[in-house]
């Protein structure tokens, strides 16, 4: 493989990995906001009021933890199966584990 070709392919995979990282950070912010808003606003103890439940789970925990958790699993499925691209992890084509020398090239 020519050096230019190797560098071009590596550059492409780097840019794809960077895009995936941006999506991950956005997803983290979205789920942080979702859980933070629902749990922060709806989970406090209100005097003389019965705690509402959904399927036996406190309402705030169902909508602020269980539901986003299921959504996060769905997002993880989409991300890992459809958005994340396969990449050549060894662009130099030589598994250098056979060389046990730790010295700098």
């Amino acid at each position: 493989m020519k050096r230019e070709d190797r560098n071009r392919r590596l550059g492409e995979s780097f840019r794809q990995a960077s895009r995936e990282t941006v999506v991950i950070v956005i997803a983290w912010l979205v789920f942080l906001s979702w859980t933070g808003l629902v749990c922060g606003l709806g989970s406090r103890l209100e005097p003389d009021k019965v705690v509402e439940t959904v399927y036996g789970i406190p309402r705030w925990a169902f909508f602020g933890v269980i539901l986003p958790w299921i959504a996060a699993c769905g997002f993880t499925f989409w991300f890992s199966m459809f958005y994340m691209k396969d990449t050549d992890l060894d662009p130099d084509g030589n598994d250098s584990l056979e060389d046990s020398s730790p010295e700098l090239p």
């Binding site: 990995a17 995936e20 749990c39 996060a72 991300f79 990449t87």
Partner: peptide, 20 residues
């Protein structure tokens, strides 16, 4: 439940952020 719920995105952040 709220304390631990960050784990819902740990596979994404902890594993995908730098793994590739």
């Amino acid at each position: 439940a709220w304390w631990i719920c960050g784990y819902m995105v740990v596979p994404l952040v902890g594993l995908s952020l730098i793994a590739k």
